[in-house]
């Protein structure tokens, strides 16, 4: 293998941290994005809808 072991380790350590922070920010932004609020609220409640058939009878609720 041409790549030196220490450079692989250095890459793993530094970019791993950067990646961790980026992901945490991304997920938080996604979860709190105002535009998503309605979808999440609907998803949260939709499983409690009394419906035992496939199809979209409940669309537009």
């Amino acid at each position: 293998m041409d790549i030196d072991h220490y450079s692989v380790v250095a890459f793993a350590k530094s970019w791993g941290l950067f990646y961790l922070i980026a992901l945490a920010v991304g997920v938080t932004v996604y979860a709190f994005w105002p535009g998503n609020r309605k979808r999440f609220d609907r998803a949260k409640k939709s499983i409690l809808d009394k419906d035992d058939r496939p199809g979209g009878e409940n669309d537009g609720n």
């Binding site: 992901l23 997920v27 409690l48």
Partner: peptide, 24 residues
């Protein structure tokens, strides 16, 4: 659990954040 308790999950956002946390 929400289905049996007949209550929606406490925080949907929290479930998303913990999902990516666990996956990562």
């Amino acid at each position: 659990l929400p289905k049996r308790a007949e209550r929606p999950i406490f925080s949907y956002r929290l479930s998303i954040i913990s999902f990516w946390g666990i996956t990562f």
